[in-house]
């Protein structure tokens, strides 16, 4: 399945939900936020929300700031 993650083309080996995608990308669950096609996906939906072919995923992470 071909998707875009933060403007990078990516091919997933199988279908997966958002939580599985973060694990697949070796990104932490804590402090992360995810938008699919510019819609913010609530953390409580991460295990139910399945990624679709052609989805544009945006990943964000909490960092230090003022």
């Amino acid at each position: 399945m071909k998707i875009q993650v933060n403007e990078q083309a990516l091919t997933l080996p199988n279908s997966m939900n958002i939580e599985q995608l973060l694990s697949h990308l070796e990104k932490p669950l804590i402090g992360s936020a995810v938008a699919v096609n510019m819609q913010v996906i609530s953390r409580s939906e991460w295990t139910q929300y399945n990624i679709n072919e052609g989805d544009n995923i945006s990943l964000f992470q909490a960092i230090a700031g003022g």
Partner: peptide, 16 residues
């Protein structure tokens, strides 16, 4: 705290 778009190549520090 702030938020940034994840750089796919980087490993982020766990600041939280």
């Amino acid at each position: 705290m702030a938020l940034k778009r994840v750089d796919m190549a980087d490993r982020d520090d766990d600041i939280l």
